[in-house]
Amino acid sequence: MRLGLISDIHANQLALEAVLARCGALRVEQLIVLGDLVGYGPDPEAVVQRMMVLAASGALVLMGNHDEAIGRPTANMNDVALAAINWTRPRLSDASRQFLSQLPLTHRRDDMLFVHADASAPGRWNYVTDTASAHASLAATDAQLTVCGHVHQPQLYCYTATAKVIHHQPSMDIAIPLAPQRRWLAVIGAVGQPRDGNPSAGFAVLDTAAREITFKRAPYDAEAAAERVRAAGLPERLAVRLLTGH
């Protein structure tokens, strides 16, 4: 089965539509959405509505820290993120807020675990940014493959025979075999706010039969998305980020 892995959409509708179109072209059979549907971006209601439709037709949607923050005004966040959440909250319908509040933190399927951030404490939203944090996440599960987001930079970690963690910086469009006798942690890049220097929307495709993961990018009109951020009156920093990918 071909799974489309997407994460950190952050209310960026243009980026989301570009990724969904690419997933369609790549014959993705099911979409796994790893959380952070809202926050930072200008189109929260449209993105959540789209996700509700996708969820109704089989997509799996998980909760991220920004989705949680909609229902929890005291959430621990930096100023820009908090300002964006406060801007977002009144712009969501009751149905959307309800949808976000009910999203699960994790999903286990066969030997795969899906989660927004570090799997050792899913509700604490720790970042997996290096081999030490990847080790903590991998040690907390027996899943052969853990898939998460939250970091906005694509990464791959492997838990080896000698209980060490190897980091691999994935190249785009290369199918990477996930040897079944190793355990793996894949960090999926962000759809709506990449931070690895490449402004194109990030996602990945997992072929569960071939046990191969391919990291991908979908180019989209980031200038238009940045204009929408400005028009919404959100912090300028959030517009610039979309253009530079940092």
């Binding site: 492997c158 080896t160 190897i166 190249s171």
Partner: peptide, 11 residues
């Protein structure tokens, strides 16, 4: 170049 190097830090 494009695949995880399992030999890298293993030994």
């Amino acid at each position: 170049r494009d695949l995880p190097d399992l030999m890298q830090e293993e030994f």
